[in-house]
């Protein structure tokens, strides 16, 4: 009964909330991210709170060439992987500055594909495991206000969808999570509508519930499913005029 989960990009608010959720249910935690010092503080906290094994590892989503080594260095492979890292960036900057656009694409899409390919092959061979990817509602339709980020997330959503189909034959579950507005450090200073903005804890609770029910795709909060249903169906000539 020593189930373990690897959390990639573990220092973000959503990742911390997810780690707490899994930790509180007795899961061992492998925390991976760039700032190992910070993650070590989280590790100490989770150990104290939940009396579970927690370890922190250095991991950089955009250092693709290091991913295979990172995976091999893990002490025992986790039962599941939760891919939380992402980079919002600035839409306006990304339009003119290739480095900024590339960073969004590399972090949200390429980096995720790189590390999850490795995990997926391992799990497929083992015929067990799960992969949870934190994508975004921004990937459901490119909007003028954040289509660089949105298109990278759209790529990630499509990737997870294909991966899910492939791994379904090997008893490996793949879940796509699409959060809407979440009050995190990433969105600090943005004015998001209070009623539509979730807390990281709500997102984590939604992820855990959906994981237990074996859902393929989950929107969090739930109402985003309906908001996005409307948004994807707005005719192009109307959509163009909306300041979305």
């Amino acid at each position: 009964m020593n189930r373990s989960v690897l959390i990639l990009g573990a220092s973000s608010d959503i990742a911390r909330a997810i780690a707490r959720k899994f930790g509180s249910e007795g899961w061992s935690l492998l925390l991976a991210g760039r700032d190992v010092e910070l993650l070590s503080r989280d590790a100490a906290d989770f150990r104290l709170r939940y009396k579970v094994d927690v370890e922190a590892f250095g991991f950089d989503a955009v250092a693709f060439e290091s991913h295979a080594r990172f995976w091999d260095s893990l002490p025992g492979k986790p039962e599941g992987v939760i891919c939380v890292f992402g980079y919002l960036g600035g839409q306006k900057v990304s339009e003119r500055n290739w480095d900024e656009a590339k960073k969004a694409i590399d972090t949200n899409f390429t980096g995720a594909v790189s590390i999850l390919n490795i995990a997926a092959n391992d799990f497929e061979e083992r015929k067990s495991g799960f992969i949870i990817g934190i994508s975004s509602v921004a990937g459901d339709r490119g909007r003028m206000s954040n289509y660089i980020y949105g298109s990278a997330k759209a790529g990630f959503t499509a990737y997870l969808s294909g991966l899910r189909a492939r791994l379904s034959k090997s008893e490996v579950k793949v879940m796509t999570v699409k959060p809407g507005f979440v009050a995190t450090r990433m969105t600090e200073g943005m004015s998001t509508p209070a009623l539509l903005t979730a807390t990281p804890q709500q997102v984590a609770a939604d992820v855990m519930r959906a994981y237990k029910r074996g859902k393929p795709v989950v929107y969090t909060r739930w109402f985003w499913k309906y908001i996005m249903l409307i948004i994807v169906h707005i005719p192009e000539r109307v959509f163009r005029k909306l300041k979305l």
Partner: peptide
């Protein structure tokens, strides 16, 4: 709000 870790007991 983000500085909320237990350190030791």
């Amino acid at each position: 709000s983000r500085l909320n870790r237990f350190i030791s007991f």
